[in-house]
Measured scan of single mutants.
Amino acid sequence: MTLTLTVPPGAKVRVRITNENGETTEIEVEPGETVTITLPAGSTVRVEVEVVDPDGRKRTETFTLKP
């Protein structure tokens, strides 16, 4: 399973991925970048995406991906 994120110009994104064992991976994606994350097959993962807009506003979306 893959997750692809494209960050709009001016925004910053931090992604936290937590697996079933509670292990967390965190990455930051710079403005204008596209990143593809390969998620472990057969695992349920929690993905938290934090977006910081150019004006400093933050918003966070959290979702769970199941196999």
Results as ranks from 00 to 15, higher is better:
Thr18Tyr: 12
Gly22Val: 09
Thr2His: 06
Arg57Thr: 11
Thr36Cys: 14
Leu5Asn: 02
Ala41Ser: 10
Glu30Lys: 10
Val49Ile: 12
Arg46Ile: 11
Glu20Ile: 05
Gly22Thr: 11
Glu50Thr: 10
Thr18Ala: 05
Glu28Pro: 12
Glu23Phe: 09
Thr25Met: 10
Pro9Asp: 06
Glu26Leu: 04
Thr64Gly: 00
Leu39Arg: 06
Gly42Ala: 13
Met1Phe: 14
Asn21Lys: 04
Thr4Phe: 12
Lys12His: 08
Val52Ala: 01
Glu20Asn: 05
Lys12Gly: 05
Glu48Trp: 04
Thr34Gln: 08
Pro67Tyr: 15
Thr4Ile: 11
Gly42Leu: 08
Thr64Lys: 01
Ile27Ala: 12
Ile27His: 12
Thr4Arg: 10
Glu28Arg: 06
Thr62Lys: 02
Gly22Pro: 07
Thr4His: 10
Ala41Asn: 09
Val35Lys: 06
Val51Ile: 11
Pro40Gly: 09
Thr18Gly: 10
Thr34Lys: 12
Leu3Ser: 02
Asn19Pro: 15
Gly22Asn: 12
Ala41Cys: 14
Asn21Arg: 09
Val7Trp: 15
Arg59Glu: 01
Glu48His: 02
Val52His: 02
Val15Asp: 00
Val49Thr: 01
Lys66Asn: 13
Leu39Asp: 06
Ala41His: 08
Ile37Cys: 11
Ala41Leu: 11
Pro67Glu: 04
Gly32Glu: 11
Thr44Asn: 03
Thr36Ser: 08
Thr62Gln: 03
Ser43Gly: 13
Val35Met: 08
Glu50Leu: 01
Val15Asn: 00
Arg59Tyr: 14
Lys66Tyr: 15
Glu30His: 09
Ala11Asn: 02
Glu28Tyr: 03
Thr64Ile: 15
Lys66Asp: 14
Thr36Leu: 14
Thr44Pro: 10
Thr60Glu: 00
Asn19Thr: 11
Thr25Gly: 06
Arg16Gly: 05
Leu5Arg: 05
Thr6Arg: 09
Thr64Pro: 15
Glu23Gln: 07
Glu61Leu: 15
Pro67Gln: 10
Pro40Ile: 14
Glu26Ser: 04
Thr36His: 08
Asn21Cys: 13
Ile27Ser: 10
Thr34Val: 14
Leu5Ala: 05
Gly10Ala: 12
Glu26Ile: 03
Ala11Phe: 02
Arg46Asn: 04
Thr24Tyr: 07
Ser43Ile: 13
Glu26Asp: 06
Pro54Gly: 04
Pro8Phe: 12
Thr62Leu: 02
Thr18Lys: 04
Pro40Met: 13
Val13Gln: 01
Glu23Ser: 06
Ile37Ala: 13
Thr62Met: 03
Leu3Lys: 02
Glu48Asp: 06
Ile37His: 12
Glu33Met: 08
Ile17Arg: 10
Pro67Asp: 08
Arg57Tyr: 03
Thr4Met: 11
Leu3Trp: 13
Glu30Cys: 09
Arg59Pro: 00
Ile27Leu: 08
Val47Pro: 00
Asn19Arg: 11
Val35Arg: 04
Met1Glu: 02
Val13Lys: 01
Val7Met: 08
Thr36Asn: 08
Met1Trp: 14
Phe63Trp: 05
Arg14Ile: 04
Thr64Asp: 12
Asn19Asp: 06
Pro67Met: 15
Thr36Ile: 15
Val35Ala: 05
Thr62Ile: 14
Ala41Thr: 09
Val47Leu: 02
Val49Arg: 01
Thr18His: 11
Glu48Lys: 02
Glu23Lys: 07
Thr6Val: 06
Thr34Leu: 14
Lys12Asp: 11
Val7Thr: 04
Lys12Met: 09
Arg16Phe: 05
Thr6Trp: 14
Gly32Arg: 13
Thr60Leu: 05
Thr38Trp: 13
Asp55Ala: 02
Val13Asn: 01
Glu30Leu: 05
Pro9Thr: 09
Thr60His: 01
Val15Ile: 06
Leu5Gln: 02
Leu65Ala: 01
Glu26Asn: 06
Asn21Ser: 07
Pro54Ser: 07
Glu50Met: 02
Glu20Thr: 04
Arg57Glu: 02
Thr18Asp: 08
Glu28Trp: 03
Val49Gln: 00
Thr34Cys: 14
Met1Asp: 03
Val49His: 00
Val49Lys: 01
Phe63Lys: 11
Val52Asp: 01
Ser43Pro: 05
Val13Ile: 03
Met1Ala: 04
Val49Asn: 00
Arg59Thr: 05
Val45Asn: 07
Val13Cys: 09
Glu20Lys: 04
Ala11Met: 01
Ala41Met: 10
Val15Cys: 08
Thr6Gln: 11
Leu65Ile: 14
Ser43Arg: 15
Thr60Met: 03
Val7Arg: 04
Thr44Trp: 15
Val35Ile: 06
Val52Leu: 02
Val52Ile: 09
Ile27Trp: 11
Lys66Glu: 15
Ile37Ser: 12
Arg46Gln: 06
Thr24Ser: 05
Thr36Lys: 09
Ile27Cys: 09
Thr2Ser: 06
Thr24Asp: 07
Thr6Asn: 10
Glu50Asn: 02
Thr25Pro: 08
Thr44Glu: 12
Thr25His: 04
Pro40Thr: 14
Ile27Asn: 12
Gly32Cys: 10
Gly42Ser: 13
Ile37Leu: 10
Pro8Cys: 14
Thr34Gly: 10
Glu26Cys: 05
Gly22Ile: 10
Asn21Thr: 06
Pro31Tyr: 07
Thr62Trp: 12
Lys58Asp: 00
Gly42Asn: 08
Thr38His: 06
Leu39Thr: 07
Val35Phe: 11
Ile37Arg: 14
Glu48Arg: 03
Asn21His: 08
Glu61Tyr: 15
Arg59Leu: 03
Glu50Ala: 01
Thr60Ile: 13
Val47Ser: 00
Ile37Gln: 12
Glu33Cys: 12
Leu5Pro: 01
Thr6Ile: 10
Leu3His: 05
Ala11His: 02
Pro54Glu: 07
Gly10Trp: 01
Leu39Asn: 10
Lys66Cys: 15
Thr60Asn: 01
Thr44His: 05
Arg14Gly: 08
Ala41Trp: 14
Thr2Glu: 02
Val52Ser: 03
Leu5Met: 12
Thr4Cys: 14
Gly32Ser: 13
Lys58Val: 12
Thr38Cys: 15
Ala41Gln: 06
Val51Gly: 01
Val7Ser: 01
Lys66Gly: 15
Thr60Arg: 02
Thr2Asp: 02
Val45His: 06
Val52Phe: 02
Val15Arg: 01
Leu39Ile: 05
Gly56Ser: 00
Pro67Asn: 14
Thr25Ala: 07
Val47His: 00
Thr36Gln: 06
Glu50Gly: 00
Val52Trp: 07
Glu48Phe: 03
Glu23Gly: 08
Thr64Met: 09
Thr36Pro: 07
Ile27Gly: 12
Asp55Pro: 00
Leu3Ala: 04
Glu30Tyr: 05
Val15His: 01
Gly22Glu: 09
Ala11Ser: 09
Thr4Asp: 04
Ser43Asn: 13
Ser43Phe: 12
Glu50Ser: 05
Thr36Asp: 08
Pro54Asn: 04
Val51Gln: 02
Gly22Asp: 12
Arg16Pro: 00
Glu23Asn: 09
Ser43Asp: 13
Leu65Asn: 00
Glu26Gly: 07
Val47Ala: 02
Val45Glu: 02
Pro54Ala: 10
Thr6Ser: 07
Glu61Thr: 15
Glu50Lys: 01
Glu33Asn: 06
Ala41Glu: 06
Phe63Leu: 08
Leu5Gly: 04
Thr2Ile: 12
Thr4Pro: 05
Arg57Pro: 00
Leu3Asp: 01
Lys66Gln: 14
